[in-house]
């Protein structure tokens, strides 16, 4: 079992529903994103266009973030998910500077304390959820490991209006992501960094 994801750039409409679903699922404070959909304009009028590019942790097989982590907080599960144990992380940020994709986020103590509306006025939602984070740790997307463990798809995948996020087992040649990678020539981001991402893009 090797979990992975494919982003279909032809489908993605840059709505960022995935971003909100993720923030919701994971009780992420202001300014923290485990996934972002970026946009890029190219070409010259009238032959101009814009592409929407979803990003999240690539769950690299050769994960630089894991290799540099001095505390052992970052580790890889048997199913290939690169995890961060919030209880072990010291917040040194070494993983963050090692990740070529800028996919790490620090849990800012002030943001956790101030809340989304500011002034320490935490909503019930935040009070319920922020407890899972230790201020100062540096964490990231875990492919919704807890959801996938009970057979659910990741929150961002479920909500995506265009089904632009295709999640599955990369070890299974017939899985939906593998088929797409094969048929439409999937490629990872920044392949030259040799991190062997388990996230691919098709366009």
């Amino acid at each position: 079992m090797k979990r992975g994801m494919v982003f279909d750039l032809r489908r993605c409409i840059g709505c960022n529903a995935c971003v909100v679903a993720c923030k919701q699922e994971n009780s992420l404070p202001d300014g923290v994103f485990f996934t972002k959909t970026l946009s890029e304009e190219y070409g010259v009028y009238p032959a101009a266009n814009r592409v929407y590019i979803p990003t999240l942790c690539n769950h690299c097989e050769d994960a630089p973030c894991e290799k540099v982590c001095p505390s052992g907080a970052t580790y890889t599960r048997d199913d290939g998910i690169v995890m961060v144990d919030d209880a072990l992380c010291i917040g040194c940020g070494t993983c963050a500077v090692a990740c070529p994709y800028d996919q790490r986020s620090q849990m800012d103590a002030d943001n956790l304390k101030d809340g989304m509306y500011g002034g320490g006025n935490l909503t019930e939602f935040e009070k319920d959820g922020y407890g899972r984070w230790t201020p100062g740790t540096v964490t990231k997307c875990d492919f919704c490991s807890q959801r996938v463990d009970v057979g659910l798809e990741p929150a961002c995948v479920v909500t995506c209006p265009t089904d632009a996020r295709i999640f599955g087992d990369l070890d299974d040649p017939n899985s939906a992501p593998n088929k797409l990678i094969r048929e439409r020539g999937g490629q990872p981001a920044l392949a030259e960094k040799n991190t062997k991402p388990k996230v691919y893009y098709v366009d």
């Binding site: 505390s71 052992g72 072990l88 917040g91």
Partner: peptide
């Protein structure tokens, strides 16, 4: 460091 109280873990 984000969580200085756990600094010792940096040697692991």
């Amino acid at each position: 460091m984000g969580v200085p109280s756990r600094a010792w873990r940096a040697m692991l």
